[in-house]
Design a protein around this nucleic acid. Structure first.
Lengths: 249, 249
DNA sequence: TGTTTAATATCGTTA
DNA sequence: TAACGATGTTAAACA
């Protein structure tokens, strides 16, 4: 158990100095902004990060029950023996109020984190795999452009098949849905308006939902199976090949 | 600074006892599963919750860089003076490996949290507001059913206008998009198949995107403006009215 | 600032 | 388990 006045002083100095604060204690939480929420008293973990983002975590579950993003303004004060923390931001106007009635643990650390984060096997990697090895779509396929802008949004990949016909490709890293098929058709319509001829339409994804498959058949949308993991393997193999070609150079 | 052996013992006993663990220290993080990621060494906050969910937070930002959801299996051991924590789950197969090289702080608490969480001004509240006060749609409008099942999904609200014509309503708490208009048309098609006559189609949302507005005009989809906050006010007013009616009773 | 798209999205609900 | 929609989604890229 830590005294309220002592806690206020430490939290204030930690926020000013840009240290990460963790508080474990009994607290109530109110939020008002895009929505309105109220969480009655219980024991939780409160984190104030070095960019003044705030997280309230209950003892279970991945998601914070309440939060406030970086850059918000934080006020801390005592009121009737309780510790009050209020975080506000203006755009959108949002307010998070935490009333702490008992502090079980409090710590603050200035953390240095220059680490690099790398992530693979995303939709971007699937696109790169198609660019690196267009034959995974079909023999004779060539990429013309990626992220081509249309009035309906950005086309993942625009290509040409061996007979010179345009191919509009929509990539999904998970099961493609009916909405994805409709989005592809919108892109296709834009391309037809621009080039005067109907392009082939193709979904590239690990799988199609049953509704999407039905809709795809009706609308003449083709499907090529590709998983993010397989795309990753292709890129890794290519990278190895490139290294070999360089060293042979 | 806390010794590795001491830390291992405390973490193991805390996980077994179902206590919430927070570790601040220098760590590397690897993830493999639906994707693959690698985060090089840096000072971070690691949280192991009482349901064995795991969160790795860098000193800034709302989101954890890496995580594992509840119910995963956690192993803890020492290796070359380092603390290794591995969390695995089978469906989908995912693995999170955290290698801690320096422990700055470690705490574990068995937290009691029976608090109730209430949230308002969501899409559900907008639906309840329409049910409570159908005239916000238009004079003479009546609700027939909510969450009516069709082959294309669940219709938010199905109603009848003053002339007895069916109205299919799709509610959005934010700006309605072209995809939402298309979803509404799918529902409408199902209703037409079932009842033999074309229903009115209506989007209820704070606003329509310009693309959605164009599509709506073409497809004969109507738009009624309603914000989640206004819906909340209607419900609050109604609730007050109900209380008055009860006390007068 | 607003729009659009991806995310290891998560989470709840339903078949 | 798969599918589908809601979320205070968040966050990044772009105009």
């Amino acid at each position: 158990m830590i005294g309220i006045d002592e806690a206020i002083a430490e939290i204030k100095s930690a926020i000013t100095a840009g240290r990460l604060v963790t508080i474990i204690g009994e607290m109530e939480v109110f939020y008002e902004g895009r929505s309105i929420s109220w969480l009655s008293s219980g024991e939780r973990l409160l984190v104030i990060k070095q960019d003044r983002s705030v997280l309230v975590h209950r003892p279970t579950g991945y998601e914070p029950t309440n939060w406030q993003p970086a850059g918000s303004h934080i006020d801390v004060w005592g009121e009737e023996g309780k510790l009050v923390i209020v975080s506000k931001r203006t755009s959108p106007p949002e307010m998070l109020k935490i009333i702490i009635t008992r502090v079980l643990s409090l710590s603050s650390f200035g953390l240095r984190d220059e680490g690099e984060f790398q992530i693979h096997a995303r939709e971007e990697d699937m696109k790169q795999a198609i660019i690196a090895e267009p034959s995974i779509i079909e023999d004779g396929f060539r990429v013309v452009e990626s992220e081509r802008k249309t009035k309906s949004g950005y086309i993942d990949v625009l290509g040409v098949d061996r007979e010179g016909r345009l191919v509009v490709i929509e990539i999904k890293r998970e099961s493609a849905d009916i909405g994805d098929v409709e989005q592809l058709v919108r892109y296709s319509t834009q391309i037809e308006e621009e080039f005067g001829s109907k392009p082939r339409q193709m979904i590239v994804a690990p799988r199609l939902s049953s509704r999407a498959a039905r809709k795809a058949r009706i609308l003449g949308v083709e499907f090529r199976q590709l998983s993010p993991r397989k795309a990753q393997e292709i890129l890794r193999r290519r990278k190895g090949l490139d290294r070999f070609l360089c060293s042979a150079d």
